[in-house]
Amino acid sequence: MAYTFPFAAIVGQDEMKLAILMAAIDPALGGVLVLGDRGTGKSTAVRALARLLPPMKVISACPYQCDPAEPQRCCPACQQALNEGRKPKTHTQPVQVVDLPLGATEDRVVGALDLERALSQGVKAFEPGLLARANRGFLYIDEVNLLEDHLVDLLIDVAASGENVIEREGLSIRHPARFVLVGSGNPEEGELRPQLLDRFGLSVEVKTPEDLSSRVEVVRRREAYERDPAGFCAEWEKDAEKLRRKISGARKRLQAIDIPEQARLRASQLCMALGTDGLRGDMTLLRAARACAALEGHTQVNDKHLRRVAPPALRHRLRRHVLDDTGSTPRIERVLAELMPV
């Protein structure tokens, strides 16, 4: 069971792959929402992400995977230890992609009393939940549109504050919970609340490929994988390694990428022309363009980057127009063609 279908082996779906990679490069982007038809490999791509991310350094004893290099983002215990000049033991571990299953109860998501110890020893101890495990990693919700409302509220709250607060019968705990939210779903099966929609930095729409050759390729690779997962993964390991290097390189370069005034202007023009609400659109657009530039090894954001990232960064922020299709994508493309003709 140790195998997952390799990310690099996914056929087509370039926008989805780009969006996922950008979210991995810049966690501040605010995650990705992948919406689309059934059987387009949405979950496959997200689950494959775990194997692409470069490992991270964590404080060994910390249940929240605190980063020894960033004391101000650590949990209170680690913060204290670091401030006192102690050198806690550290190790490197893979970045977590935590699955939030639909049936999860609230206590398992936020964390709760450690049952084992409460029952056997009568000790009040906190057992971290999924949000703790997802700190510094990814939280993946498949079928996000079917998630219980009260869990959605909770996630929105934590995602916004980056902190998880538990107050229950003498347990009073707060710990960092900064994670990249990744959701996937099929809009036909239930609508997504607008508040949650807006919470995602990027949103992509995936479609089933319609040309025969890429369909054949999908089936061919899937067949090969199913027959021999180990062999298939080994075959793709080289590409995976390349991608891994690309990601870690892009992460290092990210902060140094220059965003010229011209690009800022363009981004604002785009958002104004599309009538997106608030400044979030501008911010995300620029961030995404920066991540895109970093990923492609450029040092400066240019129009090409903006053009590529505008649809995923903006399409879920457009107000629905009574007379227009749901497809916000064509609207964005229209505005792009007007403002930034190729």
Binding site: M1, L146, E189
Partner: peptide, 29 residues
């Protein structure tokens, strides 16, 4: 119901059951 269907789907897709309920966390094949 759509919720039950979603559980079944997750199990069919991943071959695993992720249990995160009532203080229990298990992952089962």
């Amino acid at each position: 119901s759509a919720e039950t269907a979603a559980h079944l789907r997750a199990v069919l897709d991943t071959g695993q059951l992720q249990l995160q309920r009532e203080g229990l966390a298990r992952q089962m094949e």
